[in-house]
Every structure is written in structure tokens, then in C-alpha cells.
Design a protein around this nucleic acid. Structure first.
Length: 545
RNA sequence: GCACCCGUAGCUCAGUGGAUUAGAGCAUCUGUCUUCGGAACAGAGGGUCGUACGUUCGAAUCGUACCGGGUGCACCA
């Protein structure tokens, strides 16, 4: 395809002395395999009719004898149809790594300890991990990291409820069984939030407890803090692994980032930050963000300072070429300010950090709120999927469930809110992760059945053409997805590919057919392509399910 | 108030730097098949692409205005 566009580009240079970018499209198969509207674009500049230009360009293209046909359609589109050899080359082509040699840090999960993990965290972790997969597929060396808020008000709220619950004896907390940890933390946080809102004296107490989180006082506080922190990280790690995420190589904490951040802010005042009323501020409004306080007048580092500190911690450890932070889109303007400030502090960081905004998970059944303890737990989601698969007579595994869940979040474009309907999510038909996993298992089942040696196809028979053409789009789609860091392109494509194959195999029997050897080769190529695409999405492709 | 994002079929969403007849899935209805795994396949109905102007040979896509929904805007995270 790049090949064809550069061929046309040369033709245009020769014919008209103009050097233009030639963009190719994948039209409906009835029109051809590639199409370009270059003659319509040139018509104005050249003062000629688009059809005349199309005639001249397509004439030159046809002369090359490399294409099955070159036709002009409508007002002047040039439709190109490939021959069998070209189609097969595309179908077998792998993806080209464009980020080889780069080291990239990506934050692939960031739930806070002392709170419960829920479906929103799951979406963020899945999207972030898949973006990392795309970067890795593009040749980069990935350093997946996590970042967690171990200090601040939310800790104070939870500690208040926890201390209450313990009543002086940490054993009461230890008695909570492991399977209940997440729910327990959720409940504690909700309780703390409630009294913080309703009870003035408790509010003062919680503020004090929050303050203490920066240096947990030895004794019951520190013991509970340590215990629950451990519980939280155990839960987070387990849940994230269950979702199919690759493991992380570093865990950063706000407490560590805080110290570094405050130093950075102070040492870059007044050149970057300004002191205002005792606080250290950054005038982000000059950089498309908003003016924001980094260090409070009390001397306390705020979230912004910590993010600055975090950047430095990442840089010291990994010296990355790029660093990706995937967060809710409501933090977009905020990160614009942080990144602008960081680049002013150290101009060598220009363009290094990129914030990718995601949307919110909205439940079709109503609002979710950590403060009220009304959340959708990840374990519950797995149970729902499990029930659905069982009711179909299948055997649910975490791999299969995680795949189905990942697909739900990945099939839509990153950035928009996701309306999550549990009934729709656990459905196994149509455009779902299950459809793809199942499609893959069926293909593998054919391959297990043949007694012939599996070889890559060498020809394209008329009945295969659509399937081979579709297979050839794989590398192009992955290229777009990794360039734009948009996984949904791969989802859309894989679904179309599976549909194309399912139609093919409905009509063309493989085992026992006169062309079994050839068709087995096609099935193998298809199964391989499907598996590779799913792997980028972090979705397992079991041979049986 | 200022800024940003979004509005495509009943629902959930695709639609790459403008283009040949606006596409899927779900839901609804109708078929296929003694199934290389039916978690499938074929087909039907369903759209003034929020509204109105504008630019163009051509607009879901670009521009302006308006309507409707969401988010962000200094010591929370």
C-alpha cells in the first residue's frame, strides 16, 4: 500500500511536476482493493477535469502491469485491484516496528490503597495496559509502572473508620478473611467519608489522621496503616493480573513523589513557580491549563507537586524517551499544566510526557460512588461473566472472562465515557471478545483435525479472495492503531475478519475437500492473525473453550 | 462567567488528512442447518448523521451561530 501510494506519487511528479502526498483508501471490495481521489485533489491546481487526470494517472499505472486492474469510477476515483501474488504478500506481512530502540514508561494502573478497586479502575488498567501493548508491538522497550496515593485525606477517612473498628485491637481487623478485604476496605472508606461529611468533630479528627499519614505514628496507627496498605496492594496486584495486564516493574507512591516534588518546586522558584500568599503556584493559564497551587501555604506538597516528583522518579530509574500517563479525561487540563511546568523546569523533557485521557465508566443501572460504597467490584464482574458462560454450557476460565471484559472496554475509542450494562457485557454473541475467542477456537479445531501438513497458502482461489484481502489489512490496521494509540481499530478489524472467515467457512468445507491442503493453510494463516491481534489487546486465544 | 469535550438506527457504538450506495452489534421479525464446535450463517424493517446557515464539483466529516448533554477552572486527589 505504501508501495502503491509512492508509485502514484512518482507518476504525478512525472506528469505534472507536483510532489503531493497520495492517500489510499480501502474501498468496498466491489470497487477494488485500493482507491485514491488524487485526481480530484489535483483538478483545481491543474485546471483540468478530474476524469482527464484520472485517465492519465491510471494509464501510467496500468502500463506497469503490476495490478490486476486499474479503473476510473464516478467523478474520478482510481480503483486498483491487486493480483493474487500481491494479495498473498499482504496477507502474510507482519507489522513493522516504528519505535524500535525507544524506552517507554507507561503507568498501567493507579488505584489508591485504603479504597476498593472497582470497574472504573479495571477500565483504566485495561486501556493503559493495551496502550503499552501497542507501544511494545511497535518495538519499544516497555517499563510498566504503577502509582498509588498512600497519603492524604482519603487515608485519614479510612483510618478513622479502621481505628474505630479495631477498638484498640488490630486483631479485630486481622480477623477479616482475605476474600472480604476489598469489600471491607470499601466499607471503611465509605464510613469515614460519611462521618467526615456529617460530623464536625469527626472531621477535625480525620484531618489530623490524614496529616499523620505522611509519617504514620508508631503503634496502632502505623500497624493498621501497614497492614491495610499490604492488603490493598495484594488486592490490586491480584485484580490487575486477573484482568490480563502485564506485570509492572516499579510501584511508585505519592509519599515518595511528594518529597521530590516539593524540592523541585522550591528550586525552580521564581523562574517557573511564583509565590503567592505563601503558596507556590504555577501560572498554567498561560499554557492552556489553569493556575494551580503546587505547594500549599502550609508547606504541604499537593497533588501537582507529587506528579512533578513522580516524573523525576521515573526519569531517574528508566531514562525513558517517552512516558505515558493514562487518566480520566477530567484531568486533561490539569496534566497540561503539570507537563508545561515540568518542561519549563527541565527543557530536555520537552515532549516526553503524554497524558492520554480516558472516559468514565457509567453504569446503565445508576451512579457509582466510592464515598457511598456503591461500586461494581471486579470479582463480582468475573462472577457475572462466569455465570453467563456456564449457562451456555461453557467452562469459564479467568483468561476467557478477562478477554471478554477487556474487549468491552477496548472496542470503543479511548476518551469517551463508557456506558456499562452488565447484561450486554456478559452477552457472548455479536461483537464481543467471546465471539473472537470462539472463532479462534473453531479454526484451531479444524487444524487439529486435518492430517495434512499445514503450509502457508500459495495461491488465491476465487472463493478465498475476500478472506485473503481481509487478512492483508491486518498490518495496515495495526499500523494505524499503534501510531494513534487507539486499540479500537484492532477490535473493529478482528471482528470483521472473524465475520469474513465465518462466512467463508460456512460455504467452503475444509476437511475432506479436494482443496483441503490449500484451505488448511488459509485457516492457519487466519488463526495466526486472529491470535496475534488478540495478543495485542491482551486477550487470550485458547485453542479450546 | 471563561475554556474544553460530546450529540450518527429504539439501545450501545464504528465511520483514518472530504468523496462511489452512511455501517456494525444488540433488540424486533423471517429464514438456513441431521453443524470441519450454532457462542454460527443468510435476509428484512429501522437514519432529514442535534438544528440552521456557509465553504465546495461534493459535507456525518471543514467553518460560524444556536439547541441539548458532560467536564475542568488555586491550597482536595
Amino acid at each position: 500500500m505504501d508501495d502503491i501510494s509512492s508509485v502514484i506519487r512518482e507518476i504525478v511528479v512525472k506528469l505534472y511536476g507536483l510532489d503531493v502526498d497520495v492517500s489510499l483508501e480501502r474501498p468496498d471490495e466491489q470497487f477494488g482493493d485500493y482507491a485514491t481521489n488524487i485526481s480530484l485533489q489535483l483538478a483545481g491546481q491543474l485546471g483540468k477535469s478530474p476524469r482527464a487526470i484520472a485517465e492519465e494517472i491510471s494509464g501510467k499505472l496500468a502500463e506497469l502491469g503490476k495490478y490486476e486492474s486499474v479503473e476510473i469510477a464516478g467523478p474520478g476515483f482510481i480503483n486498483i485491484r491487486l493480483n493474487s501474488e500481491a494479495l498473498l504478500v499482504l496477507a502474510k506481512r507482519g507489522i513493522s516496528p516504528e519505535r524500535a530502540g525507544q524506552t517507554i514508561v507507561a503507568e498501567t494502573n493507579n488505584p489508591n490503597p485504603f479504597k476498593a478497586m472497582h470497574i472504573g479502575h479495571a477500565m483504566n488498567a485495561i486501556v493503559a495496559d493495551t496502550v503499552a501493548n501497542l507501544l511494545a508491538a511497535d518495538g519499544a522497550t516497555l517499563k510498566r509502572v504503577s502509582y498509588h496515593g498512600d497519603i492524604g485525606l482519603h487515608v485519614g477517612k479510612s483510618m478513622h473508620a479502621l481505628l474505630n473498628y479495631a477498638g484498640g485491637d488490630i486483631e479485630k481487623i486481622r480477623a477479616v478473611p482475605e476474600s472480604e478485604h476489598n469489600r471491607f476496605m470499601s466499607q471503611m472508606y465509605a464510613e469515614g467519608s460519611k462521618v467526615y461529611k456529617d460530623d464536625e468533630s469527626a472531621k477535625d479528627e480525620i484531618n489530623k489522621l490524614a496529616e499523620q499519614s505522611f509519617a504514620p505514628p508508631a503503634g496502632l496507627y502505623a500497624d493498621i496503616y501497614e497492614l491495610c496498605m499490604q492488603w490493598s496492594f495484594d488486592q490490586i496486584d491480584k485484580a490487575v493480573a486477573r484482568l490480563g495486564n502485564q506485570s509492572t516493574v516499579a510501584r511508585y507512591l505519592e509519599s515518595a513523589a511528594d518529597e521530590r516534588g516539593i524540592e523541585i518546586v522550591k528550586s525552580n522558584t521564581p523562574n517557573v513557580f511564583k509565590q503567592s500568599d505563601g503558596a507556590y503556584i504555577f501560572e498554567g493559564s498561560k499554557y492552556g491549563s489553569f493556575d494551580n497551587v503546587f505547594v500549599a501555604r502550609t508547606g504541604r506538597g499537593l497533588y501537582a507537586a507529587r506528579d512533578l516528583g513522580l516524573m523525576e522518579l521515573k526519569n531517574q530509574q528508566f531514562h525513558p524517551d517517552k512516558s505515558y500517563i493514562i487518566t480520566g479525561n477530567e484531568q486533561g487540563p490539569y496534566f497540561k499544566g503539570i507537563i508545561a511546568a515540568a518542561e519549563l523546569c527541565d527543557p530536555s523533557l520537552e515532549g516526553q510526557t503524554v497524558n492520554i485521557p480516558t472516559g468514565l465508566v457509567k453504569l446503565s443501572t445508576g451512579k457509582m460512588s466510592s464515598r457511598d460504597g456503591k461500586i461494581v467490584e471486579i470479582a463480582w464482574l468475573f462472577d457475572q461473566f462466569s455465570d453467563s458462560i456456564k449457562s451456555r454450557g461453557g467452562e469459564p476460565t479467568d483468561d476467557i472472562i478477562a478477554g471478554a471484559l477487556r474487549y468491552q472496554f477496548l472496542k470503543v475509542k479511548i476518551g469517551g465515557d463508557i456506558v456499562f450494562d452488565i447484561n450486554e457485557a456478559v452477552s457472548l454473541t455479536g461483537n464481543t471478545g467471546n465471539y473472537l475467542q470462539y472463532a479462534h477456537a473453531r479454526a484451531r479445531s479444524i487444524l487439529a483435525k486435518t492430517e495434512l501438513e499445514v503450509e502457508m497458502p500459495r495461491e488465491v482461489r476465487s472463493e478465498d479472495r475476500g478472506l485473503v484481502r481481509k487478512l492483508g489489512e491486518y498490518s495496515e490496521v495495526v499500523d494505524v492503531a499503534k501510531r494513534q494509540l487507539e486499540p479500537h481499530h484492532i477490535c473493529t478489524y478482528l471482528f470483521e475478519l472473524a465475520q469474513t472467515f465465518n462466512r467463508y467457512y460456512e460455504l467452503n468445507h475444509v476437511i475432506g475437500d479436494a482443496h483441503e491442503a490449500h484451505r488448511v493453510g488459509l485457516v492457519a494463516l487466519y488463526a495466526h492473525t486472529l491470535e496475534a491481534g488478540l495478543a495485542i489487546l491482551g486477550i487470550a486465544a485458547p485453542d479450546k473453550m
